[in-house]
């Protein structure tokens, strides 16, 4: 199948490109980017063809596109790709506005194309194993979840609100929120959040905590902070602890690593050796397009997590718990 990539603004595009290039069923035939140099370099690196003209790119006989633009540009690119009949893997978060996400979902439905959101954490074997254990009922009823998705401050457009839609809350709530929904099969009832900018001189929030009541009766918190120090031995973490009536489960998606005391660079590093979750994501998407099945991570999954992000901002400003009002799709 022929796949193209739209924009290398998000660094994950480079990982996805490498995986697509290596995939036996995929030809990475085309790359479009609004940044000529970036797109041209990527095309050279991944043995593909660069198109500076978006219409020309969308007129190609591509089966699918992977969209890795800045967050606020997801909407236009997804809608245009859908109208051109391409199946879509869109980087998270789905969009920066709820209305944008609705439009994207509607455009894909109208044009009969797959819209999958890139939540690779679902493909970490430790995470899917945790889900299996929880759904087997071994832990009894789940009463609470304590989650973190910490990182380092990414800089660039991630800290420019018009392009990113926000800082750490936008960047890091959605991954673990998706895992909580996916695992517990429940939705968020109300949201309280404390968000702030305390680590860097930037115009978006870089830290906080989000506190949730779920419709199942469980409670949850998510820490999305860009709080990892420069000396932290890896980029961040993805952890969840589930408290059930019959036991507890904690999972750390990046824990499969060895510790490297690197004298040459005067630092201590974690060398991850777990399975590559991005590989799982790309393989799943390619298979989904190939057999035309429902995507394992839908546009609605993206939308529901974005609604939590938006409610978190609202709560943090209002200093109150706000009910989550889910929009219809």
């Amino acid at each position: 199948m022929k796949v193209g990539i739209m924009s290398f603004a998000h660094m994950h595009a480079f990982t996805y490109a490498g995986l697509l290039l290596a995939h036996p069923d995929v030809e990475l035939t085309a790359i479009w980017d609004d940044d000529f140099e970036r797109g041209d370099n990527a095309a050279e690196r991944f043995k593909s063809t660069f198109y500076a003209d978006r219409e020309e790119f969308l007129a190609l006989d591509l089966d699918a596109v992977v969209i890795c633009s800045e967050n606020s540009r997801h909407r236009d690119l997804v809608v245009q790709a859908a109208e051109a009949g391409k199946h879509i893997l869109c980087e998270k978060p789905i969009a920066t506005e709820i209305e944008d996400a609705r439009e994207m979902i509607a455009a894909c439905k109208r044009n009969g194309v797959i819209l999958q959101i890139a939540f690779p954490v679902r493909f970490a074997p430790s995470i899917s194993r945790a889900r299996t254990i929880i759904q087997s009922g071994q832990l009894g009823d789940i009463l609470a979840v304590k989650a973190t998705n910490h990182g380092q401050m990414p800089g660039g457009w991630f800290v420019e609100e018009p392009l990113s839609g926000g800082g750490a809350a936008t960047d890091h709530i959605v991954h673990v929120m998706d895992i909580i929904r996916w695992t517990l099969q429940t939705e968020v009832k109300d949201v309280y959040a404390e968000l702030d900018t305390r680590f860097y001189d930037i115009d978006v929030e870089d830290c906080g905590t989000v506190s949730l009541a779920l419709e199942s009766g469980a409670i949850a918190t998510i820490d999305p902070s860009w709080s990892r120090p420069k000396t932290f031995p890896m980029w961040g973490d993805v952890t969840l602890e589930f408290v059930g009536t019959k036991g507890t489960l904690s999972v750390d998606a990046l824990k499969q690593s060895s510790t490297y005391f690197n004298d040459q660079e005067s630092k201590v590093q974690n060398l991850g050796w777990g399975d590559d979750m991005d590989q799982g994501l790309i393989d799943d998407f390619v298979q989904c397009v190939k057999i035309k099945r429902e995507p394992s991570i839908t546009g609605e999954d993206g939308l529901r997590t974005l609604e939590v992000v938006k409610a978190a901002y609202q709560s943090s400003t209002a200093k109150r718990t706000v009910p989550l009002e889910r929009v219809h799709v």
């Binding site: 009463l143 609470a144 304590k146 309280y192 404390e194 905590t209 506190s211 949730l212 009541a213 009766g217 469980a218 409670i219 949850a220 918190t221 408290v243 009536t245 019959k246």
Partner: peptide
């Protein structure tokens, strides 16, 4: 945020405070 179960055999309480 607090949850509790008052099951005779195995009472539980858990809270997450911001």
């Amino acid at each position: 945020r607090r949850v509790s179960r008052s099951d005779e055999d195995r009472p539980l309480e858990y809270a997450l405070v911001t």
